[in-house]
Amino acid sequence: MKPLLKIIRQGVYTSLQDSGRFGYRAIGIPVSGVMDRYSFEMGNKILNNAPNTVCLEIFNGGFEAEALSDHTYVITGADGDFFINDVQLYGWKSFSLCKGDRLKIKGSHNGSIFYVIPQGGVATESILQSRSTYPFARIGEEITQGRTLYGHELEQTQFVRGLMPIHRPRFDYIVQVRIFKGPHFDHFTPASRDRLSHSTFQYTGGNRMGYFFKGEKLNLIENREIISEATQFGTIQVPPNGNPIVLMADAQTVGGYPIIGTVHEDDLFKVAQLRTFNKIQFRLMED
């Protein structure tokens, strides 16, 4: 192991993530893992990392770290203002930090989540077969100011590798995502079912557990109690206020609110990368 980075400012909801912790949902442990799988996988490909390498996931910016050794990295995910010391840096292309350099992520423009991926990944302990952090149950390493992140001793790539812009995801102001019908779809009024797939909802905020949306209300035909059942990353729950919540990577394993639908897994990265006040349109898939 070699020391990579010392955290100067940890940023928002910064955590270590891999592709998730599977096999423990029946005992209430969420899957966790990266929110934007596409940016994560592409980032690992750029560096020739193994597919499930551990990365640093950061929301919105406000992040700064000092390099403790020479190492190669890539930043993927949202567009943003990145700097090495005070020199601007570009995403989706590998770059090297030299010992003593300061890496800064100031803010995001399109999209909201960044992946800082070292070549070979971050070295951290595997807990229940995953290296993803789930801070709520104190699983995994928390990223706090002053913490040192370690990596693996590797031959460093000499060439700059990157992903051509046409292959990079676009994070739009309005996104369309495909959804499956949920188990309680028919409990909603015909007007609400129609609104779900024909109106636009605005993202009002959220975190790794869930994203909150606001729009025309989704109402049940009758207010009846729902018996709790399994939920997942992408589940669209509707609490009594009629505003949908999309459960995200740290989704609780079961929920008691009516489930109107589930976002298609290949479209989840679009949801994950929404910025506050961006909009979403759900497109119901025919089966």
Binding site: F22, G23, Y24, R25, A26, P183, I227, S228, E229, A230, Q232, T253, V254
Partner: peptide
């Protein structure tokens, strides 16, 4: 199978 989550009256298979 990845895993299942048994519920009160459901079994959800991932």
């Amino acid at each position: 199978m990845i895993e299942t989550v048994p519920g009160y009256f459901t079994v959800t298979a991932f």
